[in-house]
Computed example of a mutant assay.
Amino acid sequence: MSEQGFLRISIAATVVIAALGIVFGILSGSFSIAFDGVYSLADAAMTGLALWVSSLIVKSAQSDAASGRIRNRFTMGFWHLEPIVLMLNGCLLMTVAVYALINAIISILGGGHELHFGVAITYSAVTVLVCAGMAVLGIRLNRSLKSDFISLDIKAWIMSGGIALALLIAFLIGLAVVPTPFSWIANYVDPAVLGLVCLVMIPLPIGTVWKALTEILLMAPVDLQDHVDRVATDVVDRLGFLSHRAYVARVGRAMQIELYFIVPEGLPAKTVEEWDALRDEIGAAIGDESANRWLTIAFTADAEWAE
């Protein structure tokens, strides 16, 4: 199964869960179930956007006529869209969770509300099974694909499954206390579990948001910068060049490298084929050659061209 195939299945499953959540939330009177439905709906929208960006990136790397027209119009590719989508996704999910937390606090301060536990328990149990199945499917698939989009989607399914499991446990507890002297607790079960779930959910996308932000800002990854510098330094020492300048970034699945070598003035002339052979040698030493590697190698005697 491809990345796009999994995302399509994920969107369909998420829309079903979202619709069930909203309907069952209304029927049971549960804010937490309704929140789960709205959260799933937001996640489905973001997954749809991720699918669109993923398909653009794949199409731009193909060699057919339609892909050629896309490349002619967007010559720098679509890699930059990937971290933007990931950051937007993470921020949206955190915003939804913060809003739900505020509503939960207001409900608790207002004395809670009555809940139809039977309907709520049915929804929670079904949702736990669906979320667990999608998370397992995504984890197995991503062992080979290593997609950031699938990775984020797996986290979303795990988060949704965690929410549903917490709701299921809380609703079972609420149902158990109804016939006891502690029946007043039942009115607080729904907003209390919603608040706790939100407190857990809010920080979860922070790592994804931070990684996406570093890519949007084109911050140089330390490991990639060190690797390129080692390769370039070896070339400088071996061929008697003066120095080098390396500019690197990771943007989504793309690795962007611009490498400039400062050569001595009056260096004996080389043929274009010899310079190209040297570029091939340097590119092979850097590694990871694929459609997602953007590599520029230049030679100049004027250091200002490399700054």
Rank of each mutant, 00 (worst) to 15 (best):
A249W: 01
D43K: 01
S147I: 01
E273W: 04
Q4L: 06
A254V: 01
I286N: 02
P181D: 10
G37K: 03
M87A: 11
A100H: 03
T180W: 06
I105E: 07
K211Y: 00
G29F: 13
M255P: 00
I206P: 00
V197A: 15
N292L: 12
N292E: 15
A298H: 08
M201L: 13
A170R: 11
L213G: 09
M1P: 08
R8W: 08
C91K: 00
L259I: 11
T300P: 11
L167A: 08
Q256W: 09
E265I: 08
G112H: 05
Y260M: 14
A13D: 00
Y39C: 03
Q62L: 14
V128E: 03
F78E: 07
G283A: 10
F31W: 09
G252E: 00
P203T: 02
E273G: 12
G5A: 13
V236G: 08
K270R: 15
S54A: 13
S54F: 05
A97M: 00
A284P: 04
L175E: 07
P221F: 03
E307K: 14
P181W: 05
V228C: 10
Q62A: 09
I206Q: 02
W275N: 03
I158H: 00
I185N: 10
Q256G: 11
S124D: 12
I282S: 08
A164P: 02
Y247R: 14
D276W: 03
A166F: 12
V228S: 10
L88C: 12
M134N: 01
S40I: 04
F31E: 15
E307G: 05
A120L: 08
F299I: 06
L115T: 14
D190H: 07
A249H: 02
D223I: 05
L278Q: 14
L86Q: 10
I11W: 08
G77K: 13
V263F: 05
F117M: 10
I11P: 01
Q256K: 11
G266P: 07
R73N: 04
P221N: 06
D223Q: 07
I286S: 01
S290H: 04
I11C: 10
T14K: 12
F171H: 03
F241T: 07
R143W: 05
V231M: 07
G25V: 04
G29N: 13
L199R: 02
T208Y: 00
L165F: 15
S147M: 01
V231G: 08
V193C: 08
I9K: 13
I216V: 15
V53S: 03
V189N: 05
A306P: 10
N142C: 02
G174P: 03
D276E: 09
G161L: 01
G90A: 02
H116S: 14
I121K: 11
A284G: 09
V126D: 03
Y247H: 10
V23N: 04
A192P: 03
P83C: 14
S54I: 08
L141E: 11
I84L: 12
G207C: 01
D237Y: 03
N187H: 10
P221L: 11
F117I: 14
